Simulated assay, not measured.
Amino acid sequence: MSAQNAQRHQAEELALMLSDFGMQRMSARVMAAFLFTEKPSLTLGELAEELDASQGSVSGALKTLHQVGMLERVPVPGSRRDHHRLRRDAWERLYSRQNEVVRKMMAAAEEGIAATGEDSPARERLQEMYDFYNFMFDELPLLFDRWREKRGSQG
């Protein structure tokens, strides 16, 4: 098996594992493509061709990965197409308040708390969900600082 074929195989294995753990299949394949690419950025068309998938399904996956903060759009002089790349801080964003999905979950918990009665079991569960995320987000900056320090000392 050539090195390129081995790399593609490993990307598909990673995508399969991510989808087994709950990530939508095409989002997992797109994520794996960004992790394994040698290019600084990829376009929708390049991804669709690489993954042998429709541009519509790839577009939906790109939207999802942008929403959770894993990808960013980057300018490419002379190109009219949108170029995307894995954010340098992708893993921090995935586990931070910058993750759009988590922000929406916290907002939904707050609204649910406001809509439930004072002694409601639902309110208790929603409050615990909100309190958990709030606690984690208060603690995460310290871990991120340690991570950046470790990453900096390795580079």
Rank of each mutant, 00 (worst) to 15 (best):
N134P: 10
R87H: 04
M129C: 15
A122E: 15
D82M: 12
Q67E: 11
G155W: 14
Y133I: 07
L65A: 09
P141C: 03
E38S: 14
D145C: 12
A109D: 03
N99F: 02
V74W: 13
A28M: 07
G155L: 13
L44I: 08
F34I: 08
N134D: 12
F135I: 13
G56P: 11
Y95Q: 14
S19G: 02
Q4T: 11
E118M: 15
S96M: 11
S120W: 06
E149K: 10
K39E: 07
S59R: 07
L126S: 01
L126N: 00
A11Y: 00
D20E: 13
L86A: 09
N99Q: 00
E38T: 08
L143D: 13
L143C: 15
S54T: 06
A28T: 07
T37I: 12
S59H: 15
L140E: 02
T116E: 07
A61R: 02
A28R: 00
A53Q: 10
R97P: 10
T37N: 05
M106I: 01
G112P: 12
P77A: 01
Y133N: 08
M129N: 08
H9M: 11
S153E: 06
Q154W: 11
E110G: 06
E12M: 12
E12L: 12
Q154E: 13
F132L: 05
A114D: 10
R103K: 06
F144L: 05
E49G: 09
H9E: 06
G45M: 06
A15L: 03
E149L: 10
A15G: 02
